[in-house]
């Protein structure tokens, strides 16, 4: 029931958002912003008609008009792989450095570094990473990024890394704080007094208690990753689903782009849930 309500809300948000660029107009004489709501129903009708014809419509790419249906599969998988790797990396590093490895002196340096980075807004980190990549190229000649959409592997791994930054930092902070709070609880004291090793306590007592928080914040993590994916695909000219969204003001491609994004984020969300479930089944309940 709850999931159904959520789905309805997201659906409404998306079709509303997609329509906005076409609705908002500027009255050039009075320099006013006007909302042309009357166009809305017409747009929806046209959209459905287009879908009924079995076509996804067209979008513009650098002046040429292309069919969405021709490109969507490739673009979908590019975006999907970037997002999946980004979120997965976030959960894994967050858990490793926030919880399982955090007590060692060596990882402490990484913890401090992650804490400092977490204080910097993600878009600044993205710019810094770009600068760094360019500097590395200038000094060593190693290509780390490509700005052409047809550069193959270079097109995916650097965006993946950039997409992972913000969610990783968020996840790390969350887990670190929860770990610290949980470790003050009395059941941890009981476990310590029974002479259980630190690793055992971390797996059996701490992880089990912070897993609900991780799952609760997973939507937020995915949302962060999507936000950054939009920026990164835009900055690095990655041929993902955002191509449909940023190239035009038309209702059709934006809606399809946003729905693809929704689908991607749902698949990513549930994949991570499965990974966490397997982790719990496999490692914690032996």
């Amino acid at each position: 029931m709850r999931i159904l309500q959520q789905a309805v809300f997201i659906f409404i948000i998306i079709i509303f958002l997609a329509a906005i660029p076409a609705i908002i107009e500027i009255n050039p004489l009075e320099k006013n912003i006007t909302w042309n709501l009357s166009q809305m129903d017409q747009m929806y009708v046209e959209f459905i008609r287009e879908l009924a014809r079995g076509s996804l419509g067209t979008y513009q790419l650098g002046g040429q008009v292309r069919y969405i249906a021709a490109d969507i599969t490739k673009n979908f998988f590019t975006s999907f792989s970037i997002l999946l790797v980004g979120v997965l990396a976030a959960v894994v590093t967050g858990l490793l450095f926030g919880l399982f490895l955090s007590r060692f002196t060596v990882t402490r340096i990484i913890n401090i570094l992650l804490n400092i980075l977490a204080a910097i807004p993600d878009f600044i980190l993205i710019i810094f990473s770009l600068v760094l990549a360019i500097k590395i190229y200038e000094v060593t000649g190693v290509r780390m990024i490509a700005f052409r959409p047809d550069a193959g592997a270079l097109n995916t791994w650097f965006p993946m890394m950039l997409t992972a930054i913000a969610p990783t930092l968020y996840m790390f902070k969350l887990i670190a704080v929860k770990y610290y709070q949980t470790s003050g609880e009395d059941y941890i004291r009981t476990a310590v007094s029974k002479g259980m090793p630190a690793n055992y306590i971390n797996f059996q007592h701490v992880y089990k208690n912070i897993e609900p928080f991780i799952i609760a914040e997973l939507t937020k993590v995915v949302s962060l990753a999507i936000g950054n994916l939009f920026i990164i695909e835009y900055l690095l000219n990655v041929p993902g689903v955002t191509k449909f969204i940023f190239q035009s003001n038309q209702f059709q491609p934006i809606t399809i782009g946003l729905f693809s994004m929704l689908l991607i984020s749902l698949i990513v969300y549930f994949s991570i849930r499965i990974v966490l479930y397997l982790f719990k089944r496999g490692l914690i309940y032996e």
């Binding site: 958002l17 908002i24 912003i33 939507t219 949302s223 936000g227």
Partner: peptide, 16 residues
């Protein structure tokens, strides 16, 4: 919470 806020703002501000 799923929808990144800046995207909403992008759609609102882009036309004007």
């Amino acid at each position: 919470s799923y929808v990144p806020l800046f995207i909403i703002l992008y759609f609102f501000l882009m036309p004007i």
